[in-house]
Simulated scan of single mutants.
Amino acid sequence: MFCWKSVNITRDFGRTRLAIVSISAAILFFLFFYLFLSSFVEITTVNQYGIIPFIIGLFLVPLFHKLLHGLPIWICGKRARLTLKRTGKIPVLFCYIPNKISKGLCITSSLFPLLTITLFSTIGAIYSPEHLPYLAIYATINFGLSVYDIIYVNHLIKAPKSSFIEDHLDGFHILLNKAS
């Protein structure tokens, strides 16, 4: 038998405050990421491909972010699906997990996009310094999206080790095994 604790980040923090925290964290991340890498990598020229490929890259970052959320779950043989949901006028892509999963898998799935895209951006900037500004912007957008994930992981870390996580429209539920 399970009892649950409901966690809804937007209800707890407010949508506007989360957006401000996310944008502020992304700006700080860009400053540190770009300054850190530009101090190690010599940038002689910056390749410019035009605005269209840059904008396409901006739209691909959230898509890859959501796909990377599902990858650890799919590798473990669990189900996860990407769904498009309207929040106001803007359609937003969500990674929905219909079954309960372990706490460890949920933490891995939450942090996987942050670690993967940041790592590939760092490696790409080291081996191709002429693309550093683009990679820094893409990594920054990913970090801004990952602020929500970091807050979720903060809640998950406080949950008991043997708990399971269930995805819901209003957030997620932490299921605790109560022996009767």
Rank of each mutant, 00 (worst) to 15 (best):
M1T: 03
F2E: 08
C3N: 11
W4Y: 15
K5F: 07
K5W: 04
V7G: 05
N8A: 13
D12R: 13
F13P: 00
T16P: 00
T16N: 11
R17D: 06
S22V: 03
A25H: 01
A26Y: 04
L28D: 05
L31P: 00
L35Y: 12
L35M: 04
F36D: 12
L37S: 00
E42R: 09
E42N: 09
T44W: 09
T44V: 13
T44H: 13
N47R: 09
N47V: 04
Q48L: 14
Y49S: 07
G50A: 13
P53G: 02
F54M: 14
I56M: 11
L58D: 05
L58E: 05
F59M: 06
V61N: 04
V61M: 11
V61F: 07
F64Q: 02
H65L: 02
L67H: 00
L67N: 01
H69L: 06
L71S: 05
I75R: 00
C76S: 15
G77V: 06
A80T: 11
R81P: 00
R81K: 11
L82Y: 07
L82W: 08
L84I: 14
K85H: 13
R86E: 07
T87Q: 10
K89L: 06
K89A: 05
I90F: 15
I90T: 15
V92A: 09
C95F: 03
Y96N: 04
I97H: 04
I97V: 15
P98M: 11
P98K: 04
P98C: 06
N99C: 07
I101Q: 03
K103P: 02
G104V: 03
I107A: 00
I107Q: 02
I107V: 10
P113A: 08
L115A: 14
T116F: 14
T118G: 04
L119F: 15
L119D: 03
L119W: 10
L119P: 03
S121A: 15
I123A: 12
I123D: 00
I123P: 01
A125L: 03
I126M: 04
Y127N: 10
Y127L: 12
S128A: 09
S128K: 13
P129E: 02
L132H: 08
L132K: 09
P133Y: 04
Y134I: 05
A136D: 01
A139K: 05
T140I: 02
I141A: 11
I141Y: 04
I141H: 08
F143N: 01
G144S: 07
D149Y: 05
D149F: 05
D149R: 01
D149H: 00
I150L: 15
V153T: 15
H155C: 07
K161F: 05
K161H: 11
S162D: 13
L169R: 12
G171A: 13
H173W: 03
I174T: 07
I174N: 05
L175H: 12
N177L: 13
K178V: 12
K178Y: 13
A179N: 15
